[in-house]
Design a protein around this nucleic acid. Structure first.
Lengths: 124, 124
DNA sequence: ATTTGTGGTGACCAAAAAGTAACCAATGGC
DNA sequence: GCCATTGGTTACTTTTTGGTCACCACAAAT
């Protein structure tokens, strides 16, 4: 069955996307920020398994790729807030579809290694 | 701006998806197979930068995750054909959207590190 | 004077992923 | 008998990524 598939992605752009978000922590960070900004310490607490060093690193890279906005406030003790840029927001519906795809493609999988705590929504 | 985004992906499924396809070679392999099946040697030739060992590995993992079908023919010299399963085909439109997202989000990027040769369509 | 809280940094180490190169089995063609 | 072909495997090395732990600056509270 020498089938032809119409929806052929561009390989280079795909490679680039995976370079940007296809690693152990970045999708998690983007997911956590998808409901609004979080401070460094909050991210660190929501992802208990990540080390500060690596978190710092991933945040810097995401900022460098313009997916994250970093706002540093001149207070003591310091406060730094991270939030998604418009570029990153454009990615969210696609990530949603990816997660739906996994949900229905591997329904039997129990996801015990999510590596995050449930996000606590602040009372308004 | 404490914005709420509707299209919130499920973090666990997203992590799982990235475990499956979010690495250096797998998106490329899926892309190359999206036009039909290829033999091991063809894949190896189309991705000159990959080593045989790693290619074997990635193919095995993709097969294990049921994204690839491996057909081995009892010939000498041996012939092995790889093709996408229905699960993988369900992924293609999403990968397409990812690559489009990268294209319009980073229009200035020149993709010189695609790591593949252009696929040669066999004359029918 | 000491402790507390925050958002880091730096030196160092461990684990995972990828790369290299040699080797193999089986058969057909010369 | 010997070489070429194909789809690997194996042992070993290198590169990349992630992890640990100690440390810092500053001000406020005790």
């Amino acid at each position: 069955m020498a089938r032809k598939y119409i929806d052929n992605p561009n390989s280079c752009s795909l490679v680039h996307t995976m370079n940007i978000i296809g690693n152990k922590w970045k999708p998690i960070i983007i997911y956590l920020l998808s409901n609004g900004s979080l401070r460094f310490g909050q991210l660190n607490a929501l992802i208990p398994a990540i080390s500060k060093k690596v978190l710092t690193n991933q945040l810097k890279e995401l900022e460098g790729d313009q997916l994250l906005l970093r706002q540093s406030f001149a207070e003591i003790p310091p406060r730094v807030e991270y939030s998604l840029t418009e570029k990153a927001i454009g990615l969210l519906p696609i990530l949603k579809r990816l997660s739906e795809w996994a949900d229905h493609t591997y329904p039997e999988i129990k996801f015990e290694e999510c590596r995050i705590k449930e996000i606590q929504h602040k009372p308004t």
